[in-house]
Computed example of a mutant assay.
Amino acid sequence: MSAAVHIAGPRLLGAHGRVRVALVGCGGNGSQMLTGLARLNHALVNLGHAGLHVTAFDGDTVSESNIGRQMFSPADVGQYKSVVLVHRLNAFFGLDWHARAMHAGPDEMIRGGLDLTVLCVDSIAARASLATWLKRAGGYVMDLGNRASDGQVILGSSDNAARVEGSTALRWPYDVLPELVDTSLPEDTTPSCGLAEALERQELFINQAIVTPALAILWELFRRGRISWCGAFVNLKTGHVRPLPVDNTK
Rank of each mutant, 00 (worst) to 15 (best):
G17M: 12
V5C: 10
E203M: 04
V234N: 05
N66H: 06
V118Y: 05
A75H: 07
G48E: 10
L52G: 13
M142R: 02
S228P: 00
G30L: 08
A3Y: 01
A137K: 11
V211R: 00
W229Y: 10
A209Y: 05
L236R: 04
N207M: 05
L244Y: 12
Q79C: 06
C230I: 11
L119Q: 02
L37D: 07
G225T: 13
G28V: 04
A4Y: 02
G48H: 10
H49D: 13
T61R: 11
A137V: 01
E203F: 09
D58E: 13
R242K: 10
V54G: 13
N235D: 15
R224Y: 10
H240L: 11
L89E: 13
H98I: 08
W97A: 03
L95Y: 09
A214H: 06
S82E: 04
H16K: 04
K237F: 10
H53E: 15
G139M: 09
G17Q: 06
H98A: 11
R69E: 01
K81T: 04
G9H: 06
G14Q: 11
I7K: 06
A50I: 12
A91V: 01
V153Q: 13
R18V: 13
N146S: 04
R226G: 00
G151M: 04
V83P: 00
A56S: 14
T168E: 11
V24I: 15
S31K: 08
N66I: 09
L144D: 02
S149W: 15
R127E: 08
G139D: 12
I7P: 02
D182N: 14
R147L: 08
T132P: 00
A101H: 09
A162M: 05
T190D: 08
I227K: 05
A196D: 13
L204A: 11
D143P: 01
Q152W: 13
R18G: 05
G239R: 07
A161Q: 14
V181Y: 03
V86C: 04
V86N: 02
G59V: 14
A169V: 03
D58A: 12
A99V: 10
L116P: 11
S31C: 02
T61W: 00
W229D: 11
M71C: 12
Q79A: 12
W229M: 02
L134S: 07
A56F: 10
T189M: 08
E197K: 04
V84H: 00
G28L: 07
C26R: 01
V84Q: 01
K237P: 00
A125C: 01
M71L: 08
N29H: 05
H53W: 03
T183K: 03
R242N: 01
M142P: 05
N146D: 09
D188V: 14
L144F: 03
G112V: 14
